[in-house]
Each structure stands twice: as structure tokens, then as C-alpha cells.
């Protein structure tokens, strides 16, 4: 009896050691790879003290960049919100030829390099682009101006809301909406009283992710921005410009605001998952972005 117990005990000990080793390896990687960069942002921003940090943020360019970032997000996010709802409604409540292709198209911006997202708009609206001469003749500017920033942002954040809604609405099915119809509800009544309440948390979740990306987007807006200080520099572009001018404290000060936004987004996202997980079906959709 005791002879058999010894190897069993040893095996259990080995398995526990293996488990501890795996957990430690994962923890170590996450700390080194995720936490350390985050800590570095705040440490660099405060390197010369709180006063220098506040002064860097108080500069007028910083204010302009913050306002522009908020403006771009305030236009791009609602646009993609409406698109996401419309696309999800069509995709989950009806059968039509080419549905799989439409699904792939919605996902396309996620697999395109942000630089290419900017490039295509330059080719479309730039001085040598398709609509360039026409725009110039009418005194309109898209590239190196706010409309270009909005368009590039819309492109890269297009899938977020749709991607959250499609799997959820697919899983919910259309029976409640059919019930609303047999009870006499018209289209908008059905939408606002039945559909929208059922998808509200997933919608908020998608908007949250969409907004984080819209405010933090760098590559695509960098291509169409032209880097005109105070006019076409969003916060990430302001970070880049200050960094390239060796104003490290200034760059990290603005970066720390963006990092805060990321942390708030993560916290809100976790809260939503924890509180309304089954109404978001977040985990079932797998990888996002």
C-alpha cells in the first residue's frame, strides 16, 4: 500500500509544480511584455515631475489635438454605429445571395494595413487622385484636412460595431421581432421596443472598442494628415511629432492621456463582460480587431 502511495504522491507533486511553472511563465511574460511598457509611459511622462507634465499638457497644441481627436471620434463612431446596426439587421434577419461575401467585406478593414487605408484615400482625393482636380476646382480639401482624417478613421473602425452585433443577433434569432409584428407593432416600434433593448449592451461594447480605436488610430490618419500643427494633428500624431522633436516629456505626457483612455476602455469592457456577459456574447465571437 505505502509503496504504491509514494509514486502517486510524487506524481501529484510534479503536476502541481508543472502548473505553478506554467502560471509563473504566463505571469512573467505578461508583466514584462504588457505591464512594463504601460508603466514606462507614465514613468517617462513624470520623469521631470508633475509640473513639467502639466505644462506639457497645457500647451495649446495639446488642447487642439485633444479637441480634434474628440471631433473625429464624434463623427466616425456614430457613422459606424448606424452602419453596424443596419449591416447586422440585414445579415441576421434575411437570406440573400452574396451574404458570405458581405460578411467578408465587413471584416476587410481589419486585415488591411492602416497605412494602406490612408493611401487609398490619398489616391482618391489627393491632388493627383480621382477626385483631386474636381475638389481643387471647387476649393474643397479632403486630404491634409479634417475630412480626410474622418474618412481614414471610419475605414479602420468600420467593422467594430457590426462584428459585435452579428453573432449576438444571430444567436437571439428573430422570433421576438416576429412576435412584435403579430402584435401589431410597425417597423420602428419593433426596432426601438424589441430589437434595440435586446442588443443595447453589445452595442455599447462595440461602440467602446470602436471609440478606443478611433481616438488612438495612428497609421491611417498619419498618411492623410499632413501633420499641420494645431490643425490636422490628432493626439497620436501629436505624440509622434513631439517625440521626433526630442520633446520626450511632452510626447509621453500626451501618450499617458491615451494610455489612460486605454485603461478606462479596458475597465469598462471588463465591467460589461462581467455584468452583461451573456447579453454581449463577447467570448463566443473570439478574437476582435
Amino acid at each position: 500500500m505505502s509503496a504504491a502511495a509514494a509514486p502517486r504522491g510524487a506524481r501529484r507533486w510534479r503536476s502541481r509544480a508543472a502548473r505553478a511553472g506554467l502560471v509563473l511563465a504566463a505571469l512573467g511574460f505578461m508583466a514584462l511584455f504588457l505591464l512594463l511598457p504601460l508603466a514606462a509611459v507614465f514613468a517617462e511622462a513624470l520623469r521631470q515631475g508633475a509640473r513639467a507634465f502639466l505644462a506639457a499638457i497645457a500647451q495649446p497644441e495639446a488642447g487642439a489635438a485633444i479637441r480634434l481627436t474628440l471631433l473625429v471620434a464624434a463623427i466616425a463612431v456614430p457613422l459606424n454605429l448606424v452602419f453596424g446596426v443596419a449591416a447586422a439587421w440585414a445579415m441576421t434577419r434575411f437570406e440573400f445571395p452574396g451574404k458570405a461575401l458581405l460578411g467578408a467585406l465587413i471584416d476587410l478593414p481589419f486585415s488591411v494595413s492602416p497605412v494602406i487605408a490612408g493611401l487609398v484615400y490619398v489616391l482618391l482625393f489627393g491632388a493627383q487622385g480621382w477626385f483631386g482636380p474636381w475638389l481643387a476646382a471647387h476649393g474643397l480639401q479632403v486630404i491634409f484636412a479634417v475630412p480626410g482624417l474622418v474618412l481614414a478613421t471610419v475605414f479602420v473602425t468600420l467593422p467594430f460595431v457590426a462584428r459585435e452585433l452579428i453573432p449576438l443577433m444571430q444567436a437571439q434569432g428573430g422570433e421576438e421581432e416576429e412576435a412584435a409584428r403579430t402584435l401589431g407593432a410597425n417597423g420602428w416600434q419593433m426596432f426601438f421596443r424589441v430589437t434595440l433593448p435586446n442588443i443595447r449592451w453589445a452595442l455599447l461594447y462595440g461602440v467602446l472598442l470602436c471609440n478606443a480605436r478611433a481616438m488612438g488610430e495612428f497609421g491611417a490618419v498619419s498618411v492623410v494628415s499632413g501633420h499641420i500643427r494645431g490643425l490636422t494633428t490628432t493626439m497620436p500624431l501629436e505624440v509622434e511629432m513631439r517625440y521626433n522633436e526630442y520633446d520626450y516629456v511632452g510626447a509621453f505626457a500626451v501618450a499617458s492621456l491615451l494610455a489612460l483612455l486605454a485603461l478606462v476602455t479596458l475597465a469598462a469592457k471588463s465591467l460589461l463582460e462581467w455584468r452583461y456577459g451573456h447579453e454581449i456574447a463577447a467570448r463566443a465571437t473570439g478574437a476582435r480587431r
Partner: peptide, 14 residues
């Protein structure tokens, strides 16, 4: 999800 949420420029300089 931090690399998703953190703007790429911030990640780059960090």
C-alpha cells in the same frame, strides 16, 4: 487586450 486598446504610437514609444 491591452495591445488592442493602447494606441499603437503609444505602444511604439513605450
Amino acid at each position: 487586450d491591452l495591445p488592442f486598446a493602447l494606441p499603437t504610437a503609444v505602444a511604439g514609444i513605450a
